[in-house]
Design a binder for these strands. Structure first.
Lengths: 119, 119
DNA sequence: CTCTATGCAAAAACTTTGCAGGGAT
DNA sequence: ATCCCTGCAAAGTTTTTGCATAGAG
């Protein structure tokens, strides 16, 4: 997957700020929080927030809020669920899940609980 | 279920502010937001937040964040999942769900998607 | 009586907005 | 050349904290 294409495919402008944000997200193996994305990125917080919002509205990013009340982001890829440990706040992606809920069109599943390590 | 017992069972003090918050939550048929709970409750916002946190840490309340980025609360009862429509933000409780995830101890499931009405 | 809970005020943390200049197409 | 994006500063929103007093057990 190419970061530049993610941006240009959406007909939005390719800027340094946007590429830097997506690079961080591309390298992440799990959803990561605002703070983890922003880190020391040399850009204003306004630009940062505006781009995160833009990416979400363009469908480049998915996000959800975990039990620790932080918002986590990931590049949108094949649909899968997330397990978030309420003790250590670790996030795990769960690829295979079957909910048997035909009447709903499901876009996103978050499961909170206690992971094997913390039990 | 008795509101006073919910509080006293946890060995925390029974106050008017706490009972008022739990009364609102007891009457709700679905999870409700901060604003819906607070409404015109005659108490300081600091007291309100402190008590909501206290209730959560004592296990009296459950909470989750929906797609509208608001946090929703409900009295903790028999475990069940919540479906939240990403269009109309309606919350539905789903009592029967089988995830087949034995290695995790699941406390809370949030499913985002599009409800039958909005499809 | 003791210790927790409350209200108030202030601060901290988080997010959004307006505007002028810079940069991508 | 046009229009979108950016940085900066300021304002708005939400949540937390310190402290003195009130109130529950």
């Amino acid at each position: 997957m190419n970061i530049e294409d993610l941006i240009t495919d959406k007909k939005i402008k390719l800027t340094v700020a946007r590429m830097k944000i997506l690079e961080i997200l591309k390298d992440a193996v799990k959803p990561i929080s605002y703070d983890e994305i922003k880190g020391d990125l040399p850009m204003d917080k306004a630009t940062f927030y505006r781009n995160i919002l833009k990416f979400e509205s363009e469908g480049i990013l998915n996000s959800f809020e975990a039990n620790d009340r932080k918002r986590y982001f990931e590049l949108k890829k094949n649909p899968h669920a997330h397990f978030v440990c309420i003790i250590c706040n670790q996030v795990e992606c769960i690829e295979k899940i079957n909910l048997n809920l035909e009447k709903y069109q499901i876009s996103n599943v978050i499961i909170n609980g206690i992971c094997p390590k913390c039990q």
